[in-house]
């Protein structure tokens, strides 16, 4: 019933400016990388169809501008998100530190039903660079302390782990989506039954 419906997963990528959100998305969707930096304006998205557990789902990946703080995108933008991807730059410790506030702000704005179990994925980007400043262990520890968020070390330039990371994102988002669907469909089902009853009674009463 629900599997036949077209599944659209809304994924939101957040993180400080210049950590490589757009590059990661481009690498995943278009398999392209450009060395040139161009700031994203507002928000943009790309879609890609992927197969998760034998189901075809469309990922709507929203890339946001690192400079735009939350209030400008607002409640309406974050509503209905199925997964949130937080990106930091392994060569810039500040971008790692601000993950916490990105996460908190996201939860405030999106106000998901179950904030503790909302699927996040953390990506430590630019691992191809030599001047690394945030160790994998430190990032891993932080992720574990936040209810075991999956953590990946990626490089949008060399396409390291990008595919794998987005597979995980899609799977976790799908799990969230189906849960939400179950929750949503309850009142409808009751309504349908009521309609059916009414129709049956009509049938009984019909003279022909």
């Amino acid at each position: 019933m629900s599997s036949r419906k077209k599944v659209l997963l809304k994924v939101i990528i957040l993180g400080d400016s210049g950590v490589g959100k757009t590059s990661l998305m481009n690498q995943f969707v278009n398999k392209k990388f450009s060395n040139q930096y161009k700031a994203t304006i507002g928000a943009d998205f790309l879609t890609k169809e992927v197969i998760v557990d034998d189901r075809i789902v469309t990922m709507q990946i929203w890339d946001t501008a690192g400079q735009e703080r939350f209030q400008s995108l607002g409640v309406a933008f974050y509503r209905g998100a199925d997964c949130c991807v937080l990106v930091f730059d392994v060569t810039a410790p500040n971008t790692f530190k601000s993950l916490e506030s990105w996460r908190d702000e996201f939860l405030i704005q999106a106000s998901p039903r179950d904030p503790d179990n909302f699927p996040f994925v953390i990506l430590g980007n630019k691992v191809d660079l030599d001047n690394r400043a945030v160790s994998a262990k430190r990032a891993q520890q932080w992720c574990q302390s936040k209810n075991d968020i999956p953590y990946f070390e990626t490089s949008a330039k060399e396409a390291v782990n990008v595919e794998l990371a987005f597979q995980t994102i899609a799977r976790n988002a799908l799990a969230q989506e189906t849960e939400a669907e179950l929750y949503n469909e309850f009142p409808d089902q009751i309504k349908l039954n009521a309609n059916d009853n009414g129709r049956n009674r009509d049938g009984d009463n019909c003279a022909c």
Binding site: A43, D44, E68, R69, S72, G74, F77
Partner: peptide, 20 residues
């Protein structure tokens, strides 16, 4: 951080959804 920008960004998002 102005209200104007806030609404422009939101409008941009709506336009992009519309295009899709």
């Amino acid at each position: 951080c102005s209200d104007e920008r806030k609404w422009l960004v939101r409008y941009l998002v709506e336009l992009r959804l519309r295009l899709e």
